[in-house]
């Protein structure tokens, strides 16, 4: 491992907090102040934000709690209790400095979460909620890279724009690693279960996923679908190749894909409404 890469890995392993969108925090605070709001309502807001979800899962999986690997938001919220989630949301507001251009990445993540859920349900796969969470968190590496190496991030953006290449190619060239690997490191150091960390780390290289290949394949296809629809912004605007191994693992065919496109696009109208609501707060 080269110096640049191991330095970055060390920094990421030490990362305890990530900034999230102010709109999400505000909405959660309003809900927690209202006696009439339910855990379900809070869970819905939490699972719309990749950063807050990651933080709650980190807490639920921390060795001090001693729970056995928690992989869904709703389980984590039930185990931690509403009060802990409340205080986590409040403490997040201190770090709520995510910029406006992060909205695109947030929309992309939310879109992939929704698409992953639709694919999993359509194929009748077990653990749909875990797959949706993995989809939501798949680009968490893209949240952390600009934060930990803001100079390198500027060069990466410049490279994507000038040479019209994939985000990943630019990342490899500048920081000698990529957002998938970085996301994998983060999820390992936060003790997230394999069923989440594998799809995060290998959503661009499904063949490397050994224990949770189906879940990784769903997240990969969901990512491709959202990139194809042009919803949100994940750095570059190019649709990645559909990996044959993912296609075969899910036993997809043309008709299924066409139905999925219809369903995903239909659902994205609602996701758009949600994101418009968030931004107007």
């Amino acid at each position: 491992m080269t110096d640049k890469r191991s330095d970055l890995k060390k920094i990421i392993m030490d990362t305890k907090t990530l900034p999230t969108l102010p709109g999400v925090i505000q909405k959660l605070n309003t809900l927690s102040d209202n006696d009439k709001s339910s855990v379900q309502e809070m869970a819905k807001i939490v699972s719309s934000d990749q950063v807050l979800s990651a933080r709650i899962l980190r807490l639920a999986n921390s060795p001090s709690y001693g729970f056995y690997r928690v992989s869904t938001i709703s389980n984590a919220m039930i185990l931690l209790g509403v009060n802990v989630v409340k205080s986590l949301a409040l403490s997040s507001s201190i770090f709520a400095i995510m910029e406006k251009d992060s909205v695109g990445l947030w929309e992309h993540s939310l879109g992939v979460g929704v698409a992953a859920n639709l694919i999993a349900r359509k194929l009748g796969l077990p653990e749909c909620e875990e797959i949706a969470t993995a989809g939501l968190l798949h680009d968490i590496g893209k949240v952390i890279i600009p934060l930990k190496c803001s100079e390198a991030e500027k060069t990466i953006q410049k490279l994507i724009y000038e040479r019209q290449i994939f985000t990943m190619e630019a990342e490899r060239e500048i920081i000698d690693t990529d957002h998938a690997e970085v996301g994998g490191w983060l999820s390992k150091s936060w003790f997230l279960p394999d069923k989440l960390s594998e799809p995060i780390a290998f959503h661009h290289d499904v063949a490397k996923s050994e224990n949770h290949r189906i879940k990784t394949a769903v997240v990969h296809i969901a990512d491709v679908l959202i990139k194809a629809s042009g919803f949100g912004n994940s750095g570059d605007c190019f649709v990645p190749s559909i990996q044959k191994i993912a296609w075969d693992a899910l036993k997809l065919n043309e008709q299924l894909l066409a139905e999925l496109v219809d369903e995903v696009e239909d659902k994205l109208v609602e996701v758009k409404n949600f994101s418009l609501e968030m931004m107007s707060e």
Binding site: F166, V224, L225, K227, A228, S229, G230, C237, F238, V239, P240, S241, I242, K244, W247, E254, L257, A258, V261, D262, E265
Partner: peptide, 29 residues
Amino acid sequence: ELDGRFIKTLQEPLNAMLYDIYKSYLIKS
């Protein structure tokens, strides 16, 4: 814009299939 998003991967058969599906979806919608 759809063409632009697929510019890098349209030569691959699975991506070409997705492109056609999206194109007909857009025409329909």
